[in-house]
């Protein structure tokens, strides 16, 4: 045992759509709403609800503007959101690694 507690899963990022959206944003400074919608393969309404929920949690920020006369919405991951994602991914890796270790131990000849 070490003194460092293992990373814990973030319940807010359990949902696959939320996780995909936040992971996509983690590779960008900011992304257009439509790009997120198309990547996740979800409707405008579901994207909007997901982004709003993440915004309430402080994981993303939303910026509205125009490109020419067309209204556009850009979404960006906050530091808090990035930390949450990193912790969540570390926890998932820990689960996978633990399972692999357990599998390897079980296969060892006695």
């Amino acid at each position: 045992m070490t003194g460092t507690p293992p990373p814990s899963l973030d319940r807010e990022l359990h949902h696959p759509t939320r996780l995909a959206l936040v992971a996509y944003l983690s590779s960008c400074t900011e992304t257009e709403f439509g790009v997120l919608r198309d990547y996740c393969g979800i409707s405008d309404s579901v994207t909007s609800k997901t982004v709003s929920a993440l915004e309430k949690l402080g994981y993303v920020t939303v910026r509205k503007g125009y490109v020419g006369k067309r209204p556009r919405t850009w979404v960006a991951l906050t530091r808090q959101g990035l930390r949450a994602l990193e912790t969540h991914l570390a926890a998932l890796e820990e689960i996978v690694a633990t399972a692999k270790r357990a599998g390897a131990t079980a296969e060892e000849p006695t």
Binding site: Y39, L92, I95
Partner: peptide, 23 residues
């Protein structure tokens, strides 16, 4: 809401890495 199984965790990790690569 329960902790995911190793298979679920691996799938979630894969989905996250795929999203990062796609971006």
């Amino acid at each position: 809401d329960h902790d995911p199984s190793a298979t679920d965790a691996a799938a979630a990790l894969h989905a996250a890495r795929t999203a990062q690569a796609a971006a």
